[in-house]
Amino acid sequence: MVSTAAERRARILGAVDRLGTVRVIELAAHLGIPVVTLRRDLAALTADGRLHRSHGVVSSPSRATAEQPERPPVVGMLVPTVGSYFDEIIAGARAASAGARLVLGISSYQARDDRAQVEHLLGSAVDGLLLSPHWLPGSDSPLDWLADLPVPAVLIERRGAPGAPAVALDTVASDHRHGVLLALRHLAALGHCAVLLAARDDSWTAHQVRAGYAEAVRRLGLDPQPVLDIRDPGAPGEGPGGIERLADRIAAAAGTGVRAVLVHNDHEAVRLSMLLRARGLRLPEDLALISYDDVFAALAAPPLTAVAPPRRAVGATAMALLLRRLEGEADLPAHRIDLLPELKVRGSCGAIG
């Protein structure tokens, strides 16, 4: 028989009175109540002053007052890589942790690794999760399990598709489509009527960059160009010569008058600047080049103009939002927060179309 909300909440109050201070996930298992349902009931009971909830644990108000200070919350963070784009996101999350302990899980750009890493983090008794799973547009179904996580979670640089279970999760991301528009608008202002896009296709950001390129070309009235695919040199059938072939294609396009290119990401853009010089194209005299990511762009020769997503702010905002969840704020709707990238103008965009 299905219990009413009043009956469930009476059971919850009775269990907390017996068990004392208890983790939300353990309380759900003890009562056999789905975690999502339990969280709603706890929010209502907390708002009424009948329970105290903080950092993933719940207790009676009198017990919370009498007990020793609570331990700081533990936050698990899943990222696909370290050493590049996500380093500053991690740094931002740490800076905003407000005493919370951060536990890192490193997956890969493979969806099958994400769940194992998340289960490992949950086994470490985390109170909440910051997640950047491998997630490409149209591939939500392998990640439906995210909607059933036993602790609050915030997606970073990811967003569920409309109608998918994970769409209800909080999200903090860079607005990469706006970032691409900034780059193409800058090139158009320099007189370029056509801009090439050279981009990867193996990450969420790459797909957002590609979609942003198509939108910006239409909005600015630029001549559309086929996207130049950047392949992973480690992928089957690809080798280190892939970047050489990409440089050949850019040089060929320059021969037809297309003298501006946006490259995702910095790793490829820095390598291309040298290869293009070997093909008779100097930056910025013969070709305008903008990099997307701005991790290493300033270190190139010449320093590359780059779109800079607000990586540190993304991490800090996601952590702050998760901590609000862990504090048990009642009636907090699901958040979709987009932060705007900036264009850092340097020395690689002097060429005029």
Score class of each variant (00 low, 15 high):
Leu19Cys: 12
Arg8Glu: 11
Arg312Glu: 04
Leu343Trp: 06
Gly239Thr: 09
Arg115Asn: 10
His30Asp: 12
Tyr109Leu: 15
Asp113Asn: 14
Ser124Ala: 15
Leu323Gly: 05
Asp170Cys: 10
Leu143Ala: 13
Arg11Ser: 05
Leu276Val: 00
Leu304His: 01
Gly234Leu: 14
Ala320Cys: 04
Ala308Val: 00
Ala278Ser: 11
Leu187Arg: 03
Gly49Val: 07
His264Gln: 12
Ser108Glu: 12
His192Pro: 02
Val261Gln: 01
Arg277Tyr: 08
Ala297Asn: 00
Leu51Ser: 06
Arg311Lys: 15
Asp286Ala: 03
Gly123Lys: 07
His52Trp: 13
Leu190Gly: 05
Leu102Asp: 02
Val261Pro: 01
Ser174Val: 04
Trp135Leu: 15
Ala173Ile: 09
Asp223Gln: 15
Ser3Arg: 15
Leu51Gln: 04
Leu129Cys: 08
Ala252Cys: 07
Asp286Pro: 03
Glu7Tyr: 02
Gly350Asp: 10
Leu275Trp: 01
Arg311Gly: 04
Leu19Phe: 08
Gly315Arg: 03
Leu304Trp: 00
Pro303Tyr: 03
Ala316Met: 05
Ala100Glu: 04
Gln208Trp: 03
Val36Leu: 14
Arg259Ser: 05
Thr205Glu: 14
Leu38Lys: 06
Gly234Trp: 08
Leu332Glu: 09
Gly56Asn: 04
Leu143His: 10
Thr4Arg: 12
Ala297Pro: 02
Ala254Glu: 02
Arg177His: 08
Leu276Asp: 00
Ala43Ser: 12
Pro152Thr: 06
Arg325Gln: 14
Pro303Lys: 11
Leu146Thr: 08
Ala173Met: 14
Pro165Ser: 03
Ala166Asn: 07
Ile243Ser: 09
Arg346Gln: 09
Glu268Cys: 10
Asp229Gly: 10
Val57His: 07
Ala28Asp: 03
Arg311Leu: 04
Gly92Tyr: 02
Leu13Asn: 03
Thr305Glu: 00
Arg94Phe: 05
Met319Cys: 14
Ala298Glu: 10
Gly179Asp: 01
Ser273Pro: 01
Ala125His: 13
Gly20Ser: 12
Arg218Gly: 13
Arg50Thr: 05
Trp135Asn: 15
Leu187Val: 05
Glu7His: 09
Ala188Val: 09
Ser132Met: 14
Ile89Asp: 07
Tyr292His: 13
His176Gln: 14
Val36His: 12
